[in-house]
């Protein structure tokens, strides 16, 4: 498996795990209250930080593990990376537009922050899935 494909798997899994932990923390924090009253800022910041740190650590880990494999990325990896990121970014746009619409309707901050976070996660997951599909099925 190519170094960049391993990295795509890792980033996809990290995004899903991080968001799952966030959802559990917020649901537990709600403790029967309406969801908008649940404390979410701390959980959101910590899981975002976890995602960034885990992404860096996985990159270093895979880099060390494949240090003897010679070249780690080439034109195909760069093309797949670009296409994958391009596909994933569609959710960043959807998130931005959704947050803008929610702000216009004066929705609670909870929903604005959460729609943005969810779309960042979906962007990372979709981007990773697209890259893995390109690696597995080919990119012509």
């Amino acid at each position: 498996m190519a170094f960049e494909e391993k990295q795509a798997w890792a980033l996809g899994v990290i995004a899903v795990v991080g968001y799952a932990v966030y959802v559990v923390l917020v649901l537990n924090g709600a403790a029967g209250r309406p969801l908008v009253e649940a404390p979410y800022v701390g959980a959101m910041l910590w899981t975002i930080l976890f995602g960034i740190v885990a992404g860096i650590v996985s990159g270093i880990w895979f880099g060390i593990a494949s240090r003897n494999d010679g070249l780690q990325a080439d034109e195909r990896d760069r093309e797949i990376g670009r296409f994958g990121d391009h596909i994933g970014q569609s959710f960043v746009v959807i998130g931005g537009v959704s947050a803008m619409a929610l702000a216009m309707f004066e929705a609670p901050y909870f929903w604005i922050a959460n729609v943005l976070y969810l779309c960042f996660v979906l962007s990372a997951v979709l981007g990773s899935v697209a890259k893995i599909v390109f690696y597995r099925r080919g990119m012509l």
Binding site: M1, L71, Q72, E75, R76, D77, R137, G138, M139, L140
Partner: peptide, 19 residues
């Protein structure tokens, strides 16, 4: 040729058209 072995395999199998 300056590519990874995975890329060469993809080219050989017709899964990737090289530059």
């Amino acid at each position: 040729i300056g590519v990874t072995r995975q890329t060469l395999i993809a080219i050989e199998q017709g899964k990737y058209s090289p530059s």
